Simulated scan of single mutants.
Amino acid sequence: MTIDDGIWSYPAGSGRAGGQDLTGYAVVASDGATLGHVEREAAPFGMRHLIVDSGAWVFGRSTLVPAGVVRAVDPAGRKVRLDCTRDEVKQAPRFRTDSETRDSGYLSGVGDYYARLTTPA
């Protein structure tokens, strides 16, 4: 469905425990910028992702982040660390409405974007 179906699964060693609720966890980019908090998690079409409420950092919009971009989950600190920078998340295909989470074409485009970021050159 996308150039890297692994982009929709949490990486081994990320610390993500099955059934763990990440709602409310802070989301931190690889450059140390806090992007907002996890609003919810979903997996339509087997494409697991987080919806991140980014508050004011990008004019109050939410962002869709595939699970494969998660570098680490810190349950004690209630943080999710990503394997991309704030600017890379900001440049991702724009998330506008929940209906996009049911559009496999939109999700594939998001997956392709993030897979290019996380695939070694």
Rank of each mutant, 00 (worst) to 15 (best):
G60P: 12
G19A: 03
A29I: 00
M47E: 10
Y25R: 00
R16M: 15
P11I: 07
R71L: 13
D5Q: 10
A72Y: 00
V28F: 05
A26T: 08
G19P: 04
Y25E: 01
T85Y: 08
V38P: 02
F59I: 10
A76C: 02
D83T: 06
S14K: 01
P44E: 15
P44D: 14
V52P: 02
G18S: 15
L117D: 09
R48G: 03
W57T: 13
P93M: 05
A43R: 10
V89F: 01
I7S: 01
T101M: 13
R78F: 03
C84G: 07
S9I: 05
D21M: 09
V89I: 12
T119L: 02
A29V: 01
Q91W: 03
A26V: 03
V70Q: 08
R102Q: 14
P75N: 11
G68T: 06
T85V: 08
M1L: 06
L82D: 07
D74S: 12
P44S: 12
H49G: 10
E41Y: 04
L82Y: 02
S104F: 02
V58I: 15
D53Y: 07
G68F: 02
T97G: 09
G60W: 12
D112K: 00
D4C: 01
W57Y: 09
V65Y: 02
T101N: 11
R40F: 11
E100F: 04
V70R: 06
A72T: 08
A17R: 15
I7M: 00
F95A: 08
T85W: 11
T119I: 07
M1A: 10
P93W: 03
T63R: 09
E39R: 13
Q91F: 06
Y114T: 02
V69T: 08
P75C: 09
R48L: 04
Y114H: 05
V70L: 07
D103R: 06
G15A: 11
Y25T: 01
G19K: 05
D103G: 03
E100I: 01
Y113N: 05
V65Q: 03
H37R: 15
I7T: 04
P66I: 00
V110M: 06
S108Q: 13
S108N: 13
Y114G: 02
A67G: 04
E39S: 13
G55E: 14
Y106N: 07
D98K: 10
L35T: 01
G55Y: 05
G6V: 01
R78W: 05
E39W: 13
D31M: 00
R94T: 14
D53C: 11
A92E: 12
V110Q: 10
G105F: 09
Y10C: 05
A76S: 13
P44Q: 14
W8A: 06
L82V: 07
A29K: 00
G15C: 11
L50G: 07
G24Y: 09
A76R: 09
V58G: 11
G68M: 04
P75M: 06
A42T: 14
T85E: 12
G46K: 03
P93I: 03
L64T: 08
C84F: 08
D83G: 14
F59L: 15
D74M: 06
A67S: 15
Y113P: 03
T34L: 12
V110R: 07
I3V: 06
P66W: 00
K90L: 13
P75H: 08
T118R: 15
V70G: 08
T23R: 15
R48W: 03
F95C: 02
L35S: 04
R96C: 04
E88M: 13
V28L: 02
P93G: 09
